[in-house]
Structures are given as structure tokens and as C-alpha cells.
Design a protein around this nucleic acid. Structure first.
Lengths: 208, 208
DNA sequence: TGAAAAATACCCCCGGAAGGGGGATTTCCG
DNA sequence: CGGAAATCCCCCTTCCGGGGGTATTTTTCA
């Protein structure tokens, strides 16, 4: 026999909140234990609600969804948090995932997808709507036309790891002087004259 | 009228290759223009094949799938590459995505999912199987029990950006001496005595 | 409320890392 | 063939990085 999945909804739009509740409760094995209009309202009751899944809106009055995630995780560590939002803002997506969200859905998804996402999250998956998935994948893509040579890329990567010139020389089995030359060339190609500025350019343009 | 999607399959398992070809050609609007058993075999013909989508196995004789991606992108830049593999090896996933793969499927997915993934990729989405999505999402999660305080985390993050102690002091509006103290405490908590070692620990444990 | 943790600031010392100026050679590829 | 990449060497100056202390204030939380 399967255990009932306890679900909490935190969503300030009353109409959406009811719509979610309705569609979830139509699914057998799902139980909406509580609905809240803000995290601040949910805070004290979450522990007794003991949810397995939390549907969390990002645009909330008071503590916003992204800030709420770590607080939720403290209160109910085993609950999986699925973000629900109208916006596809990169920083928000990455901040939410970094804070511990298990999934990320845009509000235009179908009812079926929401149900599926809950099952997914329970199974340890990472439910995402398509647009989110494409944004996430794009965040991994490196720039293909870098001004830096292969060796230079290798070296700036090591610099990004905080390595000193002589550490780099040792690891690459080349002379310190060669490393110095490469770094000079990197700085010249990137039009900078310090490690931090070089890393700024390199990260901004996804060169590593 | 919709344009036919030209598809190339690079897969060394003959049985799978034929299976994919079959299921794709059953879908109206899809055309498998060529099948190859290795990238090296495909290389010279890819340009005339002019594919919109490439299904690419990772375990290939000769040039492997991950290495092949950038070469493919040079030959046919607008082609979307979807990886197909039995393994879920983190490094491989991230390397493939960094190299420009548009999607990543494990071979246990259903026929319908493969068809869907092709449509997705065409639409600019990022098709992933569930396990891959969960791995990708986990890669964003930060460690929640860090020994470092908030300020220390802030500072080690700036160190990871290549910033010098006095640059950090300026940005945080605190004295250089305070930054030095924080760094000393960071090193002591992480049991290291250099920037590079600190960054190694911090990245390994996802503290930033 | 009261102790612990975090954040702030200051002193001393030393080695060598970082960045910039030159110049030079070999290797490889289109 | 010419150019880019990769390698190595010399000079120079500045000031950064790491380690040894101590101390005050603010915040946090039990």
C-alpha cells in the first residue's frame, strides 16, 4: 500500500491556490494538508503539516520564495520544494536551485505536468518545465570562439582555481617563465592587467 | 507547411541504430538522412547531410561522443546535438553540455520521449531524461552545513573570483586587517594555508 | 539575560608572488 | 612561406600573501 503524499501550497494568488488544491486532490494518493498565502503565514505550522512536497510561489508578500527555501529546509528537511512562478529570470532560477529547490515550473504548465512533477520530485527527479531546462542547459555552454589558445585557456582555468604561477608551472611541467609569458599574453588578449579583471572577462564571456 | 526535420544518427550499436531510424521515420515530418557507426565515418559527409538534429551516442569507437560535439558544431553549427547514452556519469554529462550538446537522454527512455526530445530541441528546449535532470539540478545545490560564517563565505567567494585582499576590503567597506582576520579564520576552519587549497576544499564541498 | 559566535580592527615580520619591460627559439598548420 | 602557439630567459619594482599575536563591539541564540 502506497503512503499518501502530504502537500503544502504556498501561493498568494487565491484563485491559483484553489486551482492547484483542486487538481491535486483529484489525484488519488495526494493530500493537500495546508494552503498559505505567504511563507510568513506558513512558518509556524509547517512542522506539524509535515509535508513531503511544497509547491512554492516565488512572488510572495514578505519573505519571497527564494529566501523561503533555506528556511523551509531547516524546518522540514525532507520536504521537496517545487517552485512555481510566472517569470523565467535566470538569477532567480539559479538562486532557487542553489538554495535547495528540487524542481522549477512555470505557471503555464498543464495540470498533468504539475501532478507529474510531484511524482518526479518524490522519486528524486528534478522536474523542470521546458523553458527552464533550456535555460539551465545554456548555463553550461561554453563560448566557442575564444581569443585564448588551448594552453592559455588551461592556464586561466588554473588561475580561476586560485593557483599561483609556480603551482601552475609545476602542474603543467613547464617553466615559471613560460607561465609568465602565457599570462602576459592572456592579459593582452583580454585587455586587462590583473587576475581578477581577467577572471571577470572570462566568466562574463564563458570562456572557461 | 512544415519543413522536414533532417536527422543524422551516430551510434555504433547496429541494432539500436536501426531501431532509432525506424521509430523516427514513423514520425511524419522527420527524415533520417544518414546513419553512421562513428563520428570519424560521419565527419566528411555531415555538411552535405545538413542535419537539423543529430542523435549522438557517447560510447563510440575512435572519437568519442563528447569530443565529437565541438567538431560537429564547427561543421554544422545550426545542428542541435542530442546525446544518447547508457551511462549517467556526471563528468560526461557536464562535459557534453559544456561542449554544446542541446539535450541528454539515457537509452532507457521510451520511443515517444525520443520523438518529443527532437521536437523540444528544435523549439530551443533542453530535453533531458529525468535522471539527468536530477543530476543537473543537484549540481546547483549548495552544501547547507558550512563551517564558514556568512561573512567568511562572502569573502571566500570573492577570493574565488581572483580578488586581492585589499580589493575585498574596498568592496565590503571594511579594513584590510579585518579581511586578513577573516581569511585566517577561513584557513583555520578549512584546515588549509593557501588560497588554492581553500578553493579546492570549498569547491569540493560546494560551500559556495 | 548572559555566554558564545561573528565581525571588526590593529601590531609585527618575511618571502616571494605579481605584473611589466625586453628578446629568442621551436613547432606546427594552412 | 608566414603566422600563431608554445616554450624559455633576463631585467625590474611593487606590494601581496601568510603567520604570529591581541582586543573590541555587535549579534545571536539558548
Amino acid at each position: 500500500m502506497q503512503k499518501t503524499i502530504r502537500i503544502v501550497i504556498i501561493e498568494d494568488d487565491q484563485i491559483l491556490q484553489h486551482a492547484y488544491k483542486q487538481l491535486i486532490e483529484d489525484e488519488c494518493g495526494f493530500q493537500v494538508v495546508s494552503c498559505y498565502s505567504s511563507f510568513d503565514a506558513a512558518e509556524k505550522k509547517l512542522v506539524t503539516d509535515d509535508p513531503g512536497i511544497i509547491l512554492l510561489d516565488i512572488e510572495l508578500p514578505g519573505t519571497n520564495g527564494v529566501q523561503a527555501i533555506p528556511l523551509i529546509k531547516k524546518l522540514v528537511p525532507k520536504a521537496m520544494v517545487i517552485m512555481l512562478t510566472v517569470y523565467e529570470i535566470e538569477e532567480q532560477i539559479f538562486a532557487a536551485l542553489a538554495n535547495g529547490a528540487s524542481g522549477y515550473l512555470t505557471k503555464d504548465v498543464s495540470s498533468a505536468k504539475i501532478i507529474e512533477a510531484i511524482y518526479d520530485a518524490r522519486a528524486g527527479g528534478g522536474p523542470m518545465s521546458k523553458k527552464i531546462a533550456s535555460i539551465v542547459i545554456k548555463s553550461f555552454q561554453k563560448n566557442t570562439d575564444s581569443p585564448l589558445s588551448k594552453r592559455e585557456t588551461e592556464i586561466i582555468k588554473m588561475i580561476s582555481e586560485g593557483k599561483k604561477r609556480n603551482e601552475i608551472a609545476d602542474e603543467l611541467f613547464i617553466e615559471l617563465e613560460t607561465v609568465k609569458t602565457h599570462i602576459k599574453n592572456i592579459y593582452s588578449k583580454l585587455n586587462v592587467n590583473s587576475r581578477s579583471d581577467a577572471l571577470k572577462v572570462v566568466k562574463k564571456n564563458r570562456l572557461i
